[in-house]
Simulated scan of single mutants.
Amino acid sequence: MGKNKRPADIYLRFLQLAEALRGLPALPSLDPLEDRILAFIARAGQEQQRLSVRDLMAQSEFGSPAMLHTRLKSMREKGWIVLADTEDPRRKQVELSQAAWLHFDKLSKCLVQATRDK
């Protein structure tokens, strides 16, 4: 890190690089609640935890079951998540789509680039 570079400079550089990603053709943007749901799903996937729609509905931070279903449908239509079958046909497992994992990979590269000196 350069001698006059503050930690905040790294974060602001990351935001600038991440914002540039939004200008590239990619997945449609998410609203703030969808973004929080996506982060929750991503953390579960990273920890290799199976996450069902019912598991998400148990999280009161995401609002009512009806609101959650609406958001999951929207996120699925936008290409961020997929609903996979389980051994119980009434239960669906929620996972990030391949495109969502690629998006996180790109954000990770932005973070690494932001920490480098110019």
Results as ranks from 00 to 15, higher is better:
88 D>N: 10
44 A>R: 09
118 K>L: 06
63 G>P: 00
81 I>A: 06
76 R>I: 11
111 L>F: 07
71 R>M: 05
63 G>F: 01
91 R>Q: 12
24 L>R: 14
48 Q>D: 12
47 E>Y: 12
80 W>C: 02
77 E>M: 14
75 M>D: 03
86 T>W: 02
30 L>N: 00
58 A>C: 08
97 S>T: 07
36 R>T: 13
64 S>A: 10
9 D>E: 04
2 G>C: 13
71 R>W: 05
63 G>M: 00
64 S>W: 01
20 A>C: 04
77 E>V: 08
47 E>T: 03
82 V>C: 00
52 S>K: 01
118 K>A: 03
41 I>E: 04
96 L>R: 05
75 M>T: 06
74 S>A: 14
104 F>V: 12
64 S>K: 13
79 G>A: 15
17 L>G: 01
59 Q>Y: 09
108 S>Y: 14
12 L>K: 08
102 L>K: 05
30 L>G: 03
1 M>P: 13
70 T>G: 12
53 V>G: 05
105 D>M: 12
46 Q>A: 10
7 P>F: 01
58 A>V: 00
30 L>V: 07
75 M>K: 05
49 Q>K: 15
41 I>C: 03
4 N>D: 12
115 T>C: 04
34 E>Y: 03
90 R>Q: 07
118 K>Y: 05
118 K>T: 03
33 L>R: 15
105 D>T: 13
12 L>H: 09
45 G>A: 10
12 L>G: 02
116 R>P: 00
108 S>Q: 14
38 L>P: 00
25 P>A: 15
72 L>G: 08
7 P>D: 04
86 T>M: 06
43 R>L: 15
4 N>H: 13
100 A>L: 08
85 D>A: 14
57 M>H: 13
12 L>V: 02
104 F>R: 08
53 V>Q: 04
24 L>F: 07
29 S>T: 07
34 E>A: 14
26 A>F: 12
